[in-house]
Design a binder for these strands. Structure first.
Length: 372
DNA sequence: AAAGCGGGGGT
DNA sequence: ACCCCAGCTTT
């Protein structure tokens, strides 16, 4: 059966039966979607925003991050760095501090790089088309399309997780969106149904619809304007679309943090510089183990020669399940040490700790044990 | 193609 | 416990 969607005179739907279901419904899908979005408006700081700098900031923050999480960060970030010039001249540490707790910190580093590039090499002119945007560090297929459509009305579909989910279900697209060929196929299909000169509206509608109706689990098909045409719904195969990412085994890591001060109660900290989690953030002296237990011999080896006291006791436990690692963090108190335990460590006064960016686990420790 | 990268909210 | 979020970069 071919479903053709059209509005009747009362602007409600009726079905027209034909021979087979196909992307021929594209025009109707898009208009129906836009109609839904007009009836279900959403107010967010970046919606209808045309300033490419602000849209860029919002899109980078929203990568793999929920809207509710981003909102306070976005407001503070824009207040701290109102223009791309202000971001370009900021220090990385200032930027990281505004990103603290948001996760995926390479996003902040890439933004800084790109801000400097645009200001210094492009005279501050933000690239104004998808192809040029795609070349910028930190901007990929989705984000380039989003900025191009929202700011410059380029006719390009921006497919994030929402778009993939909706299209795969409604049109029964079985391609694997987590492969390059798969996402290319989805983009091709989206381009075919994208209404001319309404890309911004369409892309925004797709994401709003994905967040309110076509949810990953338990979608609200009863409120969905195309549920009668949706292949996944009609065939009762919603759970099969889209293809799921193959889940990875969480690497377990045990972080033993030694909170070391000097006799004046300054704290020894350093910046993580390795290509590892939390690169660019700060931390206390760390001994990492693959298993829970930290041998006393190792502690002796490190702290013994520093003439420090042992019998460190765990003063706080913290467990974090990240998307790719399960990190157990333990904090130990030790007696003061006057000499850096490692060359890159430096002393910070207690009241200045808040100027540095830390991972969440250390923030929790500081909030509970150190008055800032 | 696969791995690595945060943190949190919903079910 | 599991899913996945307005994904991208590196290997």
């Amino acid at each position: 059966m071919y479903i053709h969607l059209q509005y009747n005179s009362r602007n409600s739907l009726k079905k027209v039966n034909t021979s087979s279901f196909s992307m021929k419904t594209k025009f109707n899908f898009a208009q129906l979607l836009i109609q839904w979005s007009i009836e279900n408006p959403r107010t967010l700081p970046w919606i209808a925003e045309k300033n490419p700098y602000k849209v860029w900031v919002s899109e980078i923050m929203l990568q793999q991050t929920r809207v509710e999480t981003v909102l306070p960060y976005f407001e503070k970030f824009i207040k701290a760095f109102p223009t791309i010039q202000s971001l370009a001249v900021a220090t990385e540490s200032q930027i990281f501090k505004r990103w603290e707790g948001l996760g995926y910190y390479s996003r902040a580093r890439n933004m800084h790089f790109t801000a400097k590039y645009i200001v210094n090499e492009l005279n501050g002119n933000f690239p104004n088309n998808r192809a040029a945007l795609l070349k910028l560090k930190g901007i990929g297929r989705y984000t380039s399309a989003a900025i191009a459509s929202f700011c410059y009305d380029e006719n390009v579909a921006a497919l994030d997780g929402n778009g993939i989910r909706i299209l795969s279900r409604v049109f029964g697209i079985a391609e694997n969106p987590w492969t390059l060929s798969g996402v290319t196929y989805f983009e091709k299909q989206a381009a075919a149904i994208l209404p001319k000169n309404q890309a911004a509206l369409f892309n925004q509608a797709l994401m709003d619809f994905g967040s309110k109706i076509c949810l990953p689990k338990n979608p609200h098909c009863q409120d969905c304007p195309f549920s009668f045409a949706c292949k996944a719904n009609r065939e009762d195969r919603i759970a099969e679309f889209p293809i799921k990412k193959t889940k990875i085994e969480l690497r377990k890591r045990h972080f033993h943090y030694f909170v070391i001060q000097d006799q004046k109660n300054n704290f020894w900290i350093h910046k993580r510089v390795e290509n590892d989690i939390w690169k660019g953030l700060h931390e206390f002296y760390l001994i990492e183990t693959t298993k829970k237990n930290l041998s006393k011999r190792v502690v002796q080896q490190i702290f013994g020669k520093l003439n420090s006291a042992l019998n460190p006791e765990i003063i706080l436990n913290f467990s974090q399940k990240l998307s790719h690692q399960h990190i157990f963090t333990y904090f130990y108190a030790v007696k003061p040490i006057e000499k850096a335990v490692q060359a890159d460590f430096f002393l910070v006064k207690q009241e200045n700790l808040k100027k540095f960016a830390f991972p969440k686990s250390i923030l929790v420790f500081l909030e509970n044990f150190i008055r800032l």
